[in-house]
């Protein structure tokens, strides 16, 4: 076995492919993030409500979801709510965090989950079962972000 280590340092094509594959994994997990968020009011006015993602693809919103969100908020709040909402997955597998600008997201999540939530350091912490419930209600208006603390 030791002799094999002293052989030429060339890696097998399989190993090279695996390394490329691993680097590709890091790239694709956050490829679906939007380049910029849009406000709910402007999305409601669009014929085909969508945002452009980092990889150049488009992320479409379902109109009924947008209307459901609009029914929870008044006109000023609709102008302030950025969409899609970002759900951050961090080092702790048991919980996730919704990234929020203000109290609007907290209001929506609180109504959707039917429980009080608090916004701390621009994050609303929720557990996995609540995340499942939230995703069920907001399939197109939320997207996952893999935390930059893990992805570098």
């Amino acid at each position: 076995m030791p002799n094999s280590l002293q052989d030429k340092a060339n890696q097998s094509p399989y190993k090279k492919m695996l390394q490329n594959c691993l680097r590709g994994e890091l790239r694709i997990v956050n490829s679906g993030l939007p380049q910029s968020q849009k406000r709910l009011s402007s999305l409601l006015e669009e014929k085909y409500p969508h945002v452009v993602c980092n990889d150049g693809s488009t992320h479409f919103f379902k109109r009924n979801e947008l209307e459901y969100l609009a029914s929870m908020l008044d006109t000023d709040e609709q102008k302030a709510l950025p969409l899609p909402m970002l759900i951050e997955l961090g080092a702790n597998q048991a919980e996730a965090a919704v990234i929020c600008e203000g109290q609007l997201e907290a209001k929506i999540i609180s109504k959707a989950l039917d429980m009080p939530v608090t916004c701390e350091k621009r994050r609303i912490r929720i557990y996995r079962p609540q995340l499942a419930l939230l995703r069920r209600k907001f399939k197109t208006t939320t997207v996952y972000v893999f935390s930059p603390k893990i992805v570098t």
Binding site: G32, S57, T58, H59, F60, R63, K139, Y144
Partner: peptide, 16 residues
């Protein structure tokens, strides 16, 4: 309306 959305790196279709 046919579009697409992204779930954790998977592009999936969306019809309405």
């Amino acid at each position: 309306t046919a579009g697409s959305r992204n779930i954790a790196g998977v592009r999936i279709p969306s019809f309405e």
